[in-house]
Amino acid sequence: MNYAYYPGCSAKGSSADYEKSTQAVCAVLGMNLVEIPGWNCCGSTPAHAVDTELSAALCSRNLDIAAQQGVEKLLTPCPSCLSNLRHTAKRMENPQFRARVDELLDNPAAPDFPGVTSVMQGMAAHCDANGIASFIRKDLGQLTLAPYYGCLMSRPADIMDFGDPENPTLMECLLAACGAKVLDFPLKTACCGASYGIPERTMTARLSARILRLATDMKADAIVAACPLCQMNLDLRQPQAAKEADAIFAMPVLYFTQIMGLAFGLSPDTLGLEKLRVSASALLDKLEPAPSISKTPVEGGQSCE
């Protein structure tokens, strides 16, 4: 099944591994992600912090491209892109705002934009827990995972439509379907401080350390992220955080797609695991071949949606 897809610019750079694993896992699930042609940056961080209309113009152009293609639903892996695209769609309902944005565009934006959801929600809509279980080739039963959504995915609730803003549970549902032990991770929507990584390094380190410390204390084998910026921050800056917290962390931070890929028996190369700074090798050692390529239904087998 084809899905219109907006990768966002980090997919083509800093989070190439997210992109790689997303594509690979979606392929297994039978989701064909089709990039919309000629997309541009969503204006995340710099533009939206400085100029709402400029940011909206950038997003509107992308949404307009999708609308021209006749797309009804657009998927994006990145929470930040998701947030910007959805905010823009909401703001463009105001005719005055739309008029000002249209002035920045070559042509006025399409009157109706397609809906935008995350790839994670797209997967859950595509197949239920049983569907996911049917692809399992490796047993993740030995893995204890701390799901971590980051601060953006579920907030603000009325814009993002991602379940309870403080306690989303979609990723837990997917990871459990993959056979892993999933922690009720209390800081799943706490801020990791990534967007202040440059101006306020100590603060970022302190915020990241809190998350890493809790995951360590809860004996997680890995933090499972859904946001390129969070993953980069928690993985790459782990030494800084450790220093700030006066602790030693060795916490792999993987994307949920990478975990799913591992469960589906995809190779670490295919999933871009080599790009991790904190190696996932300890994790890989805990994987075992699935007892039988079981078709046993997951308990309940209900939809994750």
Binding site: E166, P186, L187, L214, D217, K219
Partner: peptide, 8 residues
């Protein structure tokens, strides 16, 4: 703003 178990 939040209450959460510290894992310990």
């Amino acid at each position: 703003s939040a209450v959460y178990p510290d894992g310990l």
